[in-house]
Structures are given as C-alpha cells and as structure tokens.
Amino acid sequence: MSVKENLFKRIGKAIGRFFKKHWIDLTVLACVIPPIVLLFDYIYDKFRFAKKIKIFYDQFIVNQGYERLLEGLKNTALIAVVGLMIGIVIGTVIAVIRVIRPTNRVIKYAHNIVGAYVALFRGTPIVVQLLVGYFLLLPIMKVQMDPVAACITIFGLNSGAYISEIMRGGINSVDPGQLEAARAVGMPYSTSMLKIVVPQAIKNILPTLGNEFIALVKETAVVGYVGAVDITTTFQYLASNSYEYMVPYLVMAIIYMVIVAVIAALVKLMERMLAKSERRQ
C-alpha cells in the first residue's frame, strides 16, 4: 500500500475515532450552549446575542458572505502551504551551505551571503517585508503581480530564513557517520546530503516544522495590508458592513483555532507514521 493511501485511510480512521470518543461531549455542548446564550440575552439586555447572530446570519448566508470566506480560506491555505514549500526548499539549501566547513574562499562568500539573507528576513517584521516588497520593490522592478502571488513569495522567502535554522539543527542532529558512509561509497557531497542526511534531518525536525507551519498560517492574517483577501479581511469586511463586530470576530477566531488543530493532528499522524517505518516490524 502506498504511503499516500495509507495517510488518507489513517485520517479517516482518526476522524472516526474522534467522533466515537467525543460524541456525547459534542451533543451535550450543542444542547447546552444555545440555551445559555439565550439565557444571558434574557438577563443582560445589552448583549442581545440573538439579534447579533441574526445579523451575522444575514450577512453570511443571505448576502452570500460565505463565498468571500471560501476565497479567503483558499488564499490563506495557498499562501501558507506554497510559502512553506518554498521555505523548505530555500531553508534546506541555506542549511546545507551553512554546514559545509569554510575551507575555501567561495564557501566563505556563500556563508556571508546566506548569513545576510537570514539576518535580513529574521530582522524585520513580516508586515514590513510585505509593504516594502509590494509597494516599493515591485514598482521599482516594474513587475505587475497579483497580491496573493506577492504574499506567497514574501512568505516563502521569510519562512526560508527561519526553516534554514531549524534545518541546520536537524542536519547537525544526524550522526556524522551517515555522511561519512555515503561519501565512502563514492557519492559526492551534494548527493549524500540530499539522499541520506536531509531525509533523516527532516524526520528529526518534523515537530518543529509543524510548529513553523502553524505560525505561518497565523501570520497570513496580515496579508490584508497589501490587498489580498484572506480569512481576516473577510470577517473585517463582514463586520464593518453591518457594524456588528462581536460574532464575526469570534467566528474568525474559532476558524483559526480549528485550522491549527487540524494541522497539529496531521503533523502528529505523520510523525507517528515516519517513526513506525523504522521500528521493528
């Protein structure tokens, strides 16, 4: 069975397990929360939850706000996932350059260049990078770019700087004998790294990488600065349209929490699968 099929099967099983284990809790929550909300409404007149929910419902369903949300979700996912992929590629390259011992001048220059890159992208806030990149560099270079594409690029470059440090730790955590053995059978440094050391390093840093992905997802909340539509801007729009802020912003927070919970569960699953492949069968 391929790893991919295996993963889907396991996800299905995990969801099934979750509902089997928690269905009582979920039912109780569904039965208890609405009455409590209504009770609060009744006691404290100024909250007026029911009315606010009604306004949000009108905005979201009747006025087709969900279409905007779907686009926002799509953009958030796109920016986070593609950004992470770009980040992993850039981070791996930088980390591999950084672990070479500086024996000659070319390697020393390469070290300085990637060092400056990391310092640049770690030293400035992501919002600043977005603003500078989109409103300064792109016009200077006379490039027309979709805001989402610009965000993907900047987020990729940014996470590359962070992942390079994570990856360097991962590479250093792999037994040096692995590289030695690969070199001893006649494979060049780059191939040995790519086929032997980096796969083992990725296994070691998977929890940290998952953390980085979660951070990335949450950081995408700032892409509204350059006019890209994401989850945050969707709810900002819904809220300011109706002058009702409470329900949209609460729903927004819950959506982020659910996304992060799903990612955390997936990372855990992948970790377990990778660990299993090397245990006794």
């Binding site: 692995q178 030695e180 053995a181 070199r183 032997i196 090397e278």
Partner: peptide, 21 residues
C-alpha cells in the same frame, strides 16, 4: 576523489548503515 572511492570499500566501527533506507 569520488570516482576513486568507488573502488575502495570501507567498513566502519559503528556500521553506519543508512537509517532511512
């Protein structure tokens, strides 16, 4: 050196089998 190392086998104290293969 790589083309010559092909013809020189090496066995290590700590085995150094590739753990991911």
């Amino acid at each position: 050196i790589n083309t010559h190392r092909e013809h020189i086998g090496m066995v290590f104290q700590q085995f150094n089998l590739f753990n991911n293969k």
